[in-house]
Computed example of a mutant assay.
Amino acid sequence: MRARFLDSAGAGIPDYEILELILFGVFRNGDTKPLAKALVSEFGSLAAVLAAPVERLGKVPGCGDAAIAALKVTREAGLRMLQAEAKARPALSNWQALLDYCRAVLQHEQIEQFRILFLDRKNQVIADEQQQRGTVDHTPVYPREVVKRALELNAAALILVHNHPSGDPTPSRGDIEMTREVAKAAATMGIAVHDHLIIGRNGHTSFREKGLIG
């Protein structure tokens, strides 16, 4: 399997076999296929397995601390690679890389999370931070706290990002009102809000593309 993976650079290799290879470092003398297939069956895909909460992974028979650590290290390595690509060039001219990173971070999150990408005057990402973590369908956002943090980082612009665990990225009335409040508060300090991205399992919504932000 390892030779086949190297020969194909991973092309055409099913999710459960990728998991087998990841888990082989943990179970060097055992068969990793049953656990790999059980994980894909439980969570649906390789990406969902890697993003699954530790407590849920631990409920899959045979998935102990060492296996969970291997899965989480793999995901973290992938996220850091995507983050580096997103930061490599100004955000507005590197939009697909930025979107790929945001989707990787939030697409499979089961709790709503509000993040902010802080940009400098050249629209280079200078920080990516989780500001709030809420419930399955709500995250409280405080415009003054957003602006305060932007000033601390000397940011010139922001991109707001949050997920909808339901999978549907359609903005709610509350999402729209919150975005306008943040944009208004930021504008008083000369800080632009370039966009607000809502990430769902079934896609994403850009407020700027929808005309919901000026």
Rank of each mutant, 00 (worst) to 15 (best):
N29Y: 11
H204N: 09
M81P: 00
G30H: 13
N154S: 14
V182F: 06
D31P: 00
I13G: 09
I191Y: 04
R56N: 08
H196N: 13
L39F: 09
M1Q: 10
L21S: 01
N123A: 11
P90H: 06
S93K: 13
G30A: 13
E76F: 06
H196D: 08
P61K: 09
L79Q: 08
L19F: 08
D168V: 07
I213S: 06
A84Y: 03
E20T: 12
L212H: 06
D31H: 07
M178L: 11
L35I: 15
L79I: 03
A3F: 10
D15K: 07
F114W: 02
E42A: 15
K87C: 13
V146K: 04
A52S: 11
R208L: 12
G62V: 09
G12E: 09
S172G: 10
L151I: 06
L151K: 15
I111A: 04
H108F: 13
L50A: 05
L158F: 01
T188L: 12
P143S: 03
E129N: 09
P165K: 10
D168M: 02
P34L: 08
V141I: 14
V193R: 01
A150D: 02
A91V: 11
L71M: 12
H164K: 06
Q96V: 10
N163M: 05
R149H: 12
E85D: 13
Q130C: 11
T139V: 15
G174I: 07
R173H: 06
G30Y: 11
A86S: 13
D137H: 15
E109K: 15
A36L: 05
I22M: 12
V49H: 08
G58M: 07
I199N: 04
R28I: 04
A70G: 04
A47K: 12
T179I: 02
Q96E: 15
E17D: 12
V73P: 00
C102Y: 10
K210D: 06
V26T: 09
S41A: 15
A70K: 10
A127G: 01
L98D: 03
R144K: 12
E177H: 09
R180Y: 05
D65Q: 10
A86W: 07
Q130H: 00
A36K: 08
G167Y: 05
T188I: 11
R89P: 00
K87E: 15
A150H: 03
A91P: 02
I191A: 02
L21M: 15
S8N: 10
L160K: 07
D7E: 14
A127D: 12
D168F: 03
